[in-house]
Design a binder for these strands. Structure first.
Length: 225
DNA sequence: CCAAATGGCACCCTTACCTCA
DNA sequence: CTTGAGGTAAGGGTGCCATTT
């Protein structure tokens, strides 16, 4: 079962869950509308309202800070860099900031937020996956319980199973579910456990986990041979 | 050598601003 | 035009680790 990414955000995700193919999607779904207009050299102040100089001013009661919007090109380069490395060392940060005409702090913040978005996305996917898993297990549980009821109804008397080896009836107390092959197995009391496929095969479709099914041994069977 | 102080960094939570339906 | 939701840059607090004193 695969859970597809639910959004078209440009997040690169890896998820390590059983039976879960990691997915990555990088459509350029960044807003096409470039509200900042790509700044020409020397015109950054027009769009970065809060630059290095008014940084302190805004922190102690100056004019309300305006919000920086990165240009498409800046976002693209940051994204590209993030794909290579989710963290930056000081040199890389400095170089990237120079290249993007941003402060190193802004690059740092962008990476911080980007990591957070990545993690959030991954958490959402894991949540989705677990929900589906839960649903599947619930359904499986329902099915198995129904099956148990049917088996109980079929064998009102002491339940017996015909042994394929001796062609003699076996007591139900020797029945158990093999969690590996998901078949009902019999335990030969004299020769030790043997795996035997019998006419009724209980299949349990799990995702990728082993479901340990309780054995039927708790049932007393007074009527052996 | 050891312990306290310091600085840098990542993470987390939150706020403020912006855009869009 | 107004409003609420969603996205995101940035602020501030905290913990961890390495380095310095």
């Amino acid at each position: 079962m695969a859970v597809l990414p639910s959004s078209s955000s440009a997040l690169e995700l890896t998820i390590s869950m059983p039976g879960f193919a990691s997915s990555s999607s990088l459509p350029s779904s960044v807003r096409d509308l470039d509200i900042n207009q790509v700044p020409s050299i020397g015109a950054e102040e027009d769009w970065i309202t809060m630059n290095m100089d008014d940084e302190e001013e805004s922190s102690n009661g100056g004019p309300p800070r305006k919000k920086l919007r990165l240009t498409k090109e800046q976002s693209r380069l940051l994204e590209e860099s993030f794909r290579q490395n989710h963290t930056l060392n000081p040199k890389q940060k400095e170089a990237l900031a120079m290249q993007l005409k941003l402060r190193p702090r802004q690059v740092e913040v962008w990476f911080q937020n980007r990591r957070a978005r990545s993690k959030l996305k991954q958490t959402e996917m894991e949540c989705e996956y677990l929900k589906r898993w839960f649903g599947s297990l619930t359904e499986q549980n329902r099915r198995l319980q129904r099956e148990v009821e049917e088996l109980r109804a079929m064998k009102v008397g002491p339940p017996t199973v015909i042994s394929p080896h001796s062609c003699e009836p076996l007591p139900a107390s020797t029945l158990s579910m093999c969690p590996r092959c998901e078949r009902v197995t019999t335990t030969n009391l004299e020769k030790g456990p043997t795996k035997t496929a019998i006419t009724t095969t209980i299949t349990a479709t799990t995702m990728s986990t082993k479901v340990t099914t309780p054995t039927l041994q708790s049932r007393q069977s007074p009527a052996a041979c």
